[in-house]
């Protein structure tokens, strides 16, 4: 569903990423890992349509990406600069719905798709009826009010799904870092994305919170099957969270290798990481990131029989 072909991006004379090609299947969670300065964020911005590539192209569901595609969501690393401190938590989460409903107001089908909760869908349907019936000023303002209520309902549901049900009317700066990143995840989920991009999303929180957030991501992913591209510099995280790991070389970033991760689901911070398979994958990715060759004794490829073998 996502196809990246020979993507290259230069800033002046500096080549950030060079000739990157990769494919991501529907519902897959692919992690991209690489040494710092390998152009991970540049790659993600090109895929998001936030940054035009110097050459090569990104195709999402058959459509070349030339600007930010509809139903794309991004979780940035720095929550303090991506959540708006002047908006409440609920308003932050509802913000992308503003784009969705605005665009959907003349094309009814989109709005229906953006809303999952049946109660909200009914309200949306009644809004549509109102909009068809009347064009008076009063009807317009009523519609605005009920649209706002519908957006809020979606935002509350999204907050509930990340475990922040009771924090809708707080402000981001009243929450801890981990909770703020949950808000950012809720905001990404609220617009029901077909593609979720995460740029070192858990890089700014402490280790324990990081594990919780990784598990939150895996749970959401298992429930909704959102195609996800997660950029990280943390090798453990790339193996633990990913269905597949793409390793980039030091700048300019190129694809060094792709490693399939066949760890069984549901994954668990303790038992999954206890597996011999996890240790082996981590070592493999580590060597690829550092560019050191594998020792002769180590298996060069994943050997399927080992996958379900529990660690002693």
């Amino acid at each position: 569903m996502l196809e990246v072909t020979s993507l290259t991006r230069a800033f002046g004379n500096h080549l950030a990423i060079a000739d990157i090609s990769m494919q991501v299947a529907e519902g897959e969670l692919v992690t991209i890992v690489g040494p710092s300065g390998c152009g991970k964020s540049t790659l993600l911005r090109c895929v998001a349509g936030l940054l035009p590539p110097t050459s090569g192209q990104v195709v999402l569901n058959g459509v070349p990406v030339t600007r930010v595609p509809d139903r794309l969501a991004v979780v940035f690393q720095d929550y303090s600069r991506s959540l708006y401190p002047w908006l409440s938590v609920a308003a932050n989460v509802a913000l992308p719905l503003l784009a969705a409903t605005r665009r959907g107001s003349d094309r009814g089908s989109r709005r229906g798709r953006a809303v999952r909760d049946p109660a909200v869908r009914d309200r949306a349907a009644s809004q549509r009826a109102v909009s068809q019936r009347a064009v008076s000023q009063r009807a317009v303002s009523q519609r605005a009010v009920s649209q706002r209520a519908a957006r809020r309902a979606v935002a509350l549901a999204a907050l509930e799904s990340v475990g922040l049900g009771g924090f809708a009317d707080r402000y981001p700066w009243q929450l801890s870092g981990g909770m703020q990143q949950r808000v950012a995840i809720a905001r990404a989920l609220a617009c029901e994305p077909v593609l979720l991009l995460m740029d070192e999303p858990f890089g700014a929180v402490d280790a324990q919170t990081r594990e919780d957030l990784e598990d939150l991501l895996l749970r959401v992913q298992a429930e909704r099957h959102i195609t996800t591209l997660l950029v990280t510099h943390d090798i453990d995280e790339s193996v633990y969270a990913g269905d597949r790991v793409i390793v980039l070389t030091r700048g300019p970033g190129r694809v060094r290798a792709e490693v399939a991760v066949d760890l069984p689901a549901p994954r668990d911070q303790i038992t999954t990481k206890e597996r011999r398979e996890f240790a082996r994958l981590r070592a493999e990715v580590s060597r690829l990131v550092r560019g050191t060759p594998a020792p002769a004794s180590a298996p060069p490829e994943i050997s399927p029989p080992e996958i379900f073998q529990q660690a002693p």
Binding site: L72, A73, S80, R81, W86, L95, R187
Partner: peptide
């Protein structure tokens, strides 16, 4: 802050909303 404006772009905020919810409060 470039983080604020990039987030607005990433979530396809229409120009009017970008002005009233991001630029004006950010410049306030």
């Amino acid at each position: 802050d470039a983080g604020y404006t990039e987030t607005a772009r990433a979530f396809r905020l229409p120009p009017a909303q970008r002005l009233t919810r991001v630029i004006l409060p950010g410049a306030a």
